[in-house]
Amino acid sequence: MSSSLNPEIDGHTYKRQKTDDINSSDPKVARRAKFEAVFDVIAEELLSYVKGEGMPKDAVEWYEKVLYHNTPGGKLNRGMSVVDTVEILKGRQLEEEEYKNAAILGWCVELLQAYFLVADDIMDQSVTRRGQPCWYKMPNVGNIAINDAFMLEAAIYHLLKKHFRQEKYYVDLIELFLETTFQTELGQLVDLITAPEDHVDLSKFSLEKHHLIVVYKTAYYSFYLPVALAMHMSGVEAKSAYDLALSILIPLGEYFQVQDDYLDCYGKPEHIGKIGTDILDNKCSWNVNTALKYATEEQRKILDENYGQKDSEKEAKIKALFSQEPISIPQRFEAYEKESYEKINGLIETVDEEGTGLKKEVFRSFLAKVYKRSK
């Protein structure tokens, strides 16, 4: 270990003892452990590549830390959804090689997520992520995290080339990741210019603007991407099938992000793995946009004077205001959640399983994962 690196961020500390978990009698524990075991395989492949390029020992060790600190944590819903969706579409358990390929695609989604989060935390000056310090906040990291984010993204295309270059859908995978990345970055751009932390202007906010941000910043990569990857791997080729999947998954992704906004204010930090900072950070969240829509003149004045300020007392005033009539965020969220659930179920019922090669269960399983979640 190089003396310039802090042992607290040693990648080895993030490797899990998975043998017992894979054989666990709890299906959820065994399922996650099996998926995580594939990460160790691809991490070794990536580290072997770095070594093969003649990089010094401390660079290899650093990249290992980057991979293990930022990728395997979290709920892994995006990545494991690729595996789940392939299984549903094929209608059977996957053979060993099929599982490995589906899991690699899933980990590519998780690497994309890691890339976004490392960069996003720097832009937002966040403190915690997934119950631990943000990567740039770790000892001796700082702005090196910017390059680390790029290296997390680059890993995706190395893995796709290594494992899928021979497949007829290889170019489709490349294009899907590139397009989804661009869409997500467009959403991030609109978010950043609408709600810069150092200039609060609530007149720029609206529920319509919030819709645009969350569709591009979250829904494409969190919901459409995993399903579209599984569809390619399962031999679904018709453009109409991808259009149909998109029409269901984008509203589902919007619902997920509204939940996320709500939980930032009302969720417990030990459940969501971070301290909510949307109010302090001047975020264009569903909560504040709903408050703006229903606020009285006096309440609007309180919003303008206190929202987006780096002041815990002002944050407390906004939180108190959110629960007041006629704003009533908790009640309005409950109604929104019920309406969204019914709307998405209605869209799922339109799926023609025979004509598209899709299955309703793909979308039902996604909805089940996020409905009424608390983290």
Rank of each mutant, 00 (worst) to 15 (best):
residue 163 H to V: 03
residue 110 E to N: 06
residue 237 E to S: 15
residue 192 L to T: 09
residue 297 E to I: 14
residue 283 K to G: 03
residue 35 F to T: 05
residue 95 E to M: 09
residue 65 K to S: 13
residue 204 K to A: 12
residue 63 Y to S: 01
residue 366 F to V: 14
residue 186 L to D: 05
residue 372 K to R: 12
residue 137 K to D: 00
residue 121 D to R: 07
residue 82 V to L: 08
residue 7 P to H: 09
residue 31 R to E: 04
residue 342 E to T: 14
residue 261 D to M: 06
residue 239 K to C: 09
residue 79 G to H: 04
residue 19 T to H: 12
residue 313 E to W: 03
residue 338 K to P: 03
residue 237 E to D: 14
residue 269 P to N: 08
residue 363 F to L: 12
residue 50 V to Y: 12
residue 18 K to P: 04
residue 221 Y to R: 07
residue 255 Y to N: 01
residue 155 A to H: 03
residue 146 I to W: 01
residue 129 R to V: 05
residue 227 V to S: 00
residue 213 I to F: 05
residue 331 Q to P: 02
residue 46 L to D: 07
residue 184 T to G: 00
residue 366 F to L: 14
residue 171 V to L: 15
residue 74 G to Q: 06
residue 227 V to I: 12
residue 48 S to P: 00
residue 253 G to H: 06
residue 372 K to E: 08
residue 67 L to S: 00
residue 308 G to N: 00
residue 373 R to A: 01
residue 183 Q to L: 14
residue 86 V to E: 00
residue 339 E to V: 13
residue 181 T to I: 13
residue 296 T to F: 04
residue 295 A to G: 10
residue 53 E to F: 06
residue 349 E to Y: 10
residue 19 T to F: 10
residue 15 K to Q: 14
residue 355 G to R: 06
residue 332 R to F: 03
residue 120 D to R: 01
residue 145 A to P: 06
residue 108 C to L: 02
residue 96 E to K: 11
residue 94 L to E: 03
residue 85 T to D: 14
residue 221 Y to E: 02
residue 100 K to M: 14
residue 140 N to L: 13
residue 332 R to V: 08
residue 156 I to T: 01
residue 41 V to H: 14
residue 220 Y to A: 03
residue 262 Y to I: 07
residue 336 Y to I: 07
residue 50 V to N: 05
residue 174 I to S: 01
residue 35 F to N: 02
residue 337 E to F: 08
residue 153 E to D: 10
residue 319 K to R: 15
residue 234 S to V: 08
residue 67 L to M: 05
residue 223 F to H: 06
residue 56 P to T: 00
residue 89 L to I: 06
residue 64 E to S: 10
residue 222 S to K: 01
residue 69 H to E: 12
residue 50 V to R: 10
residue 266 Y to N: 07
residue 247 S to H: 13
residue 33 A to K: 09
